[in-house]
């Protein structure tokens, strides 16, 4: 779907932040993803018009980075770390359990569009390995059993907003040193949350 005027205004505000229009490409792709759950062709056309590069150039960037989704994600995007620290701390079993519960292989979405499962490289939570993200909200120290409970909880309770701290309390274990800014508002979409872009407003 093409963009409505509100979205275009938002896009223009973002473009304003950069000395060159084309530099706004990254954030605009997140904006598209926030809207559709993935980067659809119509959004590519809109973005290319807004920043004056060709559609295929937009698609080239959008398809290079894995966090720009090329297909619609489920309501919950489960990203499980498979890098070294997590691997040492048994992420393999976490992955297996989640796969079994959801019935999904890497980069698949279930038929009800509830879950999308992906294995990812280090998400910067090595101190609390193994780590999992739900819609990019990080939960650390997730044991294989807790991982199953987490999935069940999502499936049965279907929370609208995912808040990292809440899930951490319920399903997490050891946490790494928390140096991030205080942000407990959570996220309600599968786009990475950035307040400046508008993908993570107060919910």
């Amino acid at each position: 779907m093409s963009w409505d005027s509100k979205l275009i205004d938002r896009a223009k505000e973002i473009i304003e932040l950069y000395p060159q229009k084309r530099s706004a490409l990254g954030p605009l792709l997140y904006l598209a993803q926030e809207k559709e759950g993935y980067i659809d062709d119509d959004s590519v056309v809109e973005i290319s018009k807004l920043i004056g590069i060709t559609e295929v150039q937009v698609r080239s960037v959008a398809s290079f980075y894995t966090m720009y989704k090329q297909e619609p994600s489920g309501k919950y995007l489960l990203s499980v770390c498979k890098s070294i620290s997590c691997e040492i701390n048994n992420s393999k079993e976490v992955i297996d359990n989640i796969k079994e519960f959801t019935g999904l292989a890497n980069n698949e979405t279930d038929i009800e569009s509830t879950f999308t499962f992906e294995e990812v490289e280090c998400i910067g939570a090595c101190g609390g390995a193994p780590a999992v993200q739900i819609n990019y909200e990080t939960v650390e120290g997730v044991t294989p059993t807790k991982a199953l409970e987490l999935c069940k909880y999502l499936k049965e309770e279907v929370p609208e907003v995912i808040v990292a701290d809440e899930l951490q309390d319920k399903f997490g274990g050891t946490k790494s040193f928390d140096w991030a800014i205080e942000d407990n508002s959570g996220t309600s979409s599968t786009a990475p949350g950035f307040q400046i872009i508008g993908t993570s407003e107060e919910k």
């Binding site: 062709d41 590519v44 295929v56 150039q57 080239s60 290079f64």
Partner: peptide
Amino acid sequence: LIEFIQRGNKTEVNTF
């Protein structure tokens, strides 16, 4: 009007 699409082993030249 042609660019690299995808990455790594999947990279291909294509149009929009």
